[in-house]
Amino acid sequence: MDLPDLGPLWLTIRLAAVTTLVLLIIGTPLAWWLAHTRARLRPVVEAVTALPLVLPPTVLGFYLLVLLSPDSLLGGLWLSATGTTLTFSFTGLIIASTLYSLPFMVQPLQAAFESVGRAPLEAAASLRAGPLDAFFTVASPMALRGYLTATVLTFAHTIGEFGVVLMVGGNIPGRTKVVSIQIYEQVETINYDNAHALAAILLVFSFTVLVSVYTFNRRFPVHPG
């Protein structure tokens, strides 16, 4: 039996890692705002954040394709600035994955920040910690479990995405061909051995990651509040 091409697997892991990093940076302030705001806009923002959970990936993928295409404002600006298109590129995939996995980052973080609550932040302020200081030294450590859950879910969910990637990225080896698409391709070409091998790798990987997270959570319980 020939070993399947592992390139798409590395590409997938790279995509998931970059997406998770981007979402940690974007998702933290968004989740913080959602957890603490009293603005009337909040339910609207919450709904938008949750949309990728319920929309068919093809719908999201279609809009992204329209948004990122060189004919659109964003895609056109990108093309004139970098000389490359956003569609059918790795950068385009990152943008797509970021939107697609947004709820998996924001929702656990929001829940974690809500359970930390305002009380410890007031305590920190009374000890002369400014808001940023209090965020990094009190809120974040107390929300550690939320961060762990959000990171793992985002990473795993990005690895498993298929529809959006296919719509936005296509199937270009080395650039946009991720492992889920590779598996689909192997099945289409009745190459079941390779499909089995790749599917097994994904299954074992996902299972191992989840088990380690649950073990970690059990062993290092954080007591907020």
């Binding site: 007031e122 305590a123 009190v138 107390m142 550690l144 954080v222 907020p224």
Partner: peptide
């Protein structure tokens, strides 16, 4: 320059 002792102490659990 004010210190505040809360009814529920609010020590940092971590």
């Amino acid at each position: 320059a004010v210190g505040y002792v809360f009814q529920d102490a609010r020590l940092f659990p971590h």
